[in-house]
Design a protein around this nucleic acid. Sequence first.
DNA 1: AAAAGGTTTAACCATTTGGTTAAATATGGC
DNA 2: GCCATATTTAACCAAATGGTTAAACCTTTT
Lengths: 210, 210
Amino acid sequence: MVKPFDKMEVEITTEEKILIAARKVFIEKGWDGARMQEIADNAGINKALLHYYFRNKEQLFKRVFAGIVGKLIPNLNTIIQSEQPIFEKIQSFIDAYIDFLLANQELPLFVANELSRNANLIVGAFEENGLKPMVGQMVMEIFQAIENKQIRPINPAHLLMSIVSMCVFPFMGRSIFQKVLMQVPEEMYQELLKQRKKEIYEMVYHSIVL
Amino acid sequence: MVKPFDKMEVEITTEEKILIAARKVFIEKGWDGARMQEIADNAGINKALLHYYFRNKEQLFKRVFAGIVGKLIPNLNTIIQSEQPIFEKIQSFIDAYIDFLLANQELPLFVANELSRNANLIVGAFEENGLKPMVGQMVMEIFQAIENKQIRPINPAHLLMSIVSMCVFPFMGRSIFQKVLMQVPEEMYQELLKQRKKEIYEMVYHSIVL
DNA sequence: AAAAGGTTTAACCATTTGGTTAAATATGGC
DNA sequence: GCCATATTTAACCAAATGGTTAAACCTTTT
């Protein structure tokens, strides 16, 4: 029962409370639907204090967004850079992607949305943080794998597009899948999502193996 | 140079002008971002007349949304019901889906968005119009194809999920793909989209053929 | 020409919302 | 106890927005 000596650092500051609340509300409602009052309520403070910490909605949004994009891309780049045979690398890529999505299910729709409505603002958020996914390298590796007769000839850009699509769409288009197409209850859909890792890899494997 | 005898029917009524404008603005800005004034401007009329035709924003939105969902689903159901061998049916499905998406590129993101924010309202729009995609039948056919040793064993739900994902995500997540991941100019991305039909089918074919 | 419905103009209203302000209060470090 | 910072309270403001209203105007039908 000894107090940890870094106890002070585990305290949640008001700024963190605000960022957590803002993240939640922005993701849930989008930029247009998000209300500063609701963010304040969620953070357990009042509007005056909210504006005391973040001058305006835009500044707060930028901070939230930067925090979001700063998580996935480095994660994926690490995998891309790792030294593994092509099939294992693809599997690791899918695994990491799905794991991240399972833990951040509403993120893709939010990002796609804001990105398409407010491109300038958002693309800046990526560049300011020096975040660029290393897609080029992945394309090169697929090219080499084709030349080395490890996999059948296929357009690398499309292969990557397909892999990412199969990973992300069940989350991003979840409302369409779950409520319109498949009409299954929540838990069942979550079960499907968990199976995706294996299913996607098998699909990709069979589609490129010689 | 003879006037068509049904000339009267090609005139665009004010109601149609409104619906076209509303569709555009709603898709572009979403429910939260759409402004009645902007819709009126786009339709070339004023706000008073807009409210004269549609009592309020919600009513107008419902009409617009009903018109949108009323297009894709019957289209796909026709293909599902057609009598074709499994591989051809899959190819037809992909073709029809991509064709529709090429002609309605911003639709998926809009639908997913509104669906996730306003589920009750929207799911109603589907049911009121008696629109249900016949996914069940497609699943059955895939099951039979497996039993008949036409394709390798695979979870039909996941196969469908993957096909739909590969078709829709390049449109729905276009902003992410184009601006963040691939960083290619507009025309090049359009070129990629047109190639998708063939690429997806080949991917699916190789992944299930025995 | 009268009637009827579509259309415009323009003012108006209530509400919401982002943002501000100022004064009061709490809190912790010195 | 003093000072700076954090926080609350509560009122306030300007702009945007959905929606209304009433009078005038235009066009077509009867």
